[in-house]
Amino acid sequence: MMHWISLTLRELLGLFVEDTRFVLTILGWLTVFALLLPQVPLPPPWRGALLFIGLAAILLSHCLRHVVRSAGSTPRDAAP
C-alpha cells in the first residue's frame, strides 16, 4: 500500500516536473514577471506578449541546451 501511495505521489509530481531546471526557470520567470508587472509601465496588450515571449525563450533555450548536451552521445532519456 505504501509503495502504491509513493508511486502515485511520484507520478503526480512527474506530471509537472521532469527537468527540474526547466521547471525552476519557468517558475522563476513567472515570479519575476508577477513582481515587475506593477512597476513596468507597459500598455495592457504588451503585458501578455511579454509573458509569452519569456516562456517561449525558456522553451527554446532549454531544448537547444539539451540537444547540445546529448549531441554526439546516444539518447539518454528513456521513453516513459
Binding site: 509537472f16 516562456l55 525558456i58 522553451l59 540537444v67 532519456d77
Partner: peptide, 20 residues
C-alpha cells in the same frame, strides 16, 4: 503551464531525434 511545457519540450526533443 508546467504540464503543457513538459509535454511540449519532450515532443520537441523526440521530433528532433534526441529522445527516443
Amino acid at each position: 503551464l508546467l504540464f503543457g511545457m513538459r509535454w511540449l519540450r519532450k515532443a520537441i526533443l523526440r521530433a528532433a531525434g534526441v529522445v527516443p
